[in-house]
Amino acid sequence: MTGRALLDSEAAKLRGAPFTYSEVGLTRAVELPGGYGVVRRSRVAGFGAERFEDAAQTLLSWNMHRRAGLTVRPSDAPVVEGSVAIVRVGASRFGLDAPVRVVYVIDESHRKGFAYGTLPGHPERGEEAFVVELRDNGAVAFTITAFSRPATLLARLGGPVTRVIQSRVTNRYLKAV
């Protein structure tokens, strides 16, 4: 599910929109902000420099999202700081659009990834970071760190169901890389 790229006017509107939370960039912190549901998940995604580069490419090209079954309409591919996207969860008229903006990009020799934050119209408020790392032992670790809480009435009413959906999407991300 590729989705067409955002039009320049759509991207400009999203770039000008405020984040829906105030703790921008805090997925980098050891301690995540209070008052949110927190996700910290990691898995070994293979071994070696070639696997690391492949995982980083999958992540930074938005293909992790696509392989997880989501539709992505990005402003930029590969991901750069300030990129915006509409990530669509679900199909056709029953799907939900989730607008996001990239908060930071990690581009180090042994660590690559990015974090995005929620924009108005996203069913949640918060931030999610996706990082691949080539460890000294050759293992390629993929880590997802997120904090979020419901932003819409529908998400609040979903309660535990919303968290189950988020957990399933996170599992699909982990498998996609």
Rank of each mutant, 00 (worst) to 15 (best):
M1A: 13
M1V: 13
G3E: 02
R4P: 08
R4M: 11
A5P: 12
A5V: 12
L7N: 07
D8G: 07
D8H: 08
S9L: 14
E10G: 05
E10M: 08
A12Q: 11
K13F: 07
L14E: 03
L14N: 01
R15H: 05
R15K: 14
Y21P: 01
E23A: 11
V24H: 03
G25Q: 08
L26T: 14
E31S: 12
E31M: 09
E31R: 13
L32P: 00
P33F: 00
G34R: 14
Y36N: 03
V38R: 10
V39H: 01
V39Q: 11
V39W: 01
R41A: 13
R41W: 02
S42C: 13
S42T: 15
R43N: 09
V44K: 10
G46V: 02
G48D: 10
E53G: 08
Q57R: 15
W62H: 11
R66W: 01
R67P: 00
R67T: 05
A68D: 04
G69W: 05
L70H: 09
R73N: 06
S75F: 07
D76P: 00
V80Q: 14
V84L: 07
A85D: 04
V87Q: 04
V87I: 15
R88H: 06
R88F: 06
V89R: 09
G90N: 04
G90R: 05
A91I: 11
A91M: 11
D97C: 12
P99Q: 08
R101D: 10
V105N: 10
S109I: 09
R111W: 00
R111G: 01
F114S: 09
F114L: 11
A115K: 04
G117E: 06
L119T: 05
G121E: 05
E124R: 05
E124S: 05
R125C: 15
E127K: 04
E128V: 07
E128Q: 09
E128G: 02
A129R: 07
A129S: 13
F130Q: 03
V132Y: 01
E133A: 08
E133L: 07
L134R: 01
L134Q: 00
R135W: 04
R135M: 14
A139M: 09
A139L: 09
A141T: 15
A141D: 14
I144T: 05
R149F: 01
R149S: 07
L153H: 09
L153S: 13
G158W: 06
G158E: 09
T162W: 14
Q166I: 11
R168I: 10
V169Q: 12
N171R: 14
N171M: 08
Y173E: 01
Y173P: 02
L174N: 01
L174R: 00
L174V: 03
K175Q: 15
A176D: 12
V177D: 09
V177E: 06
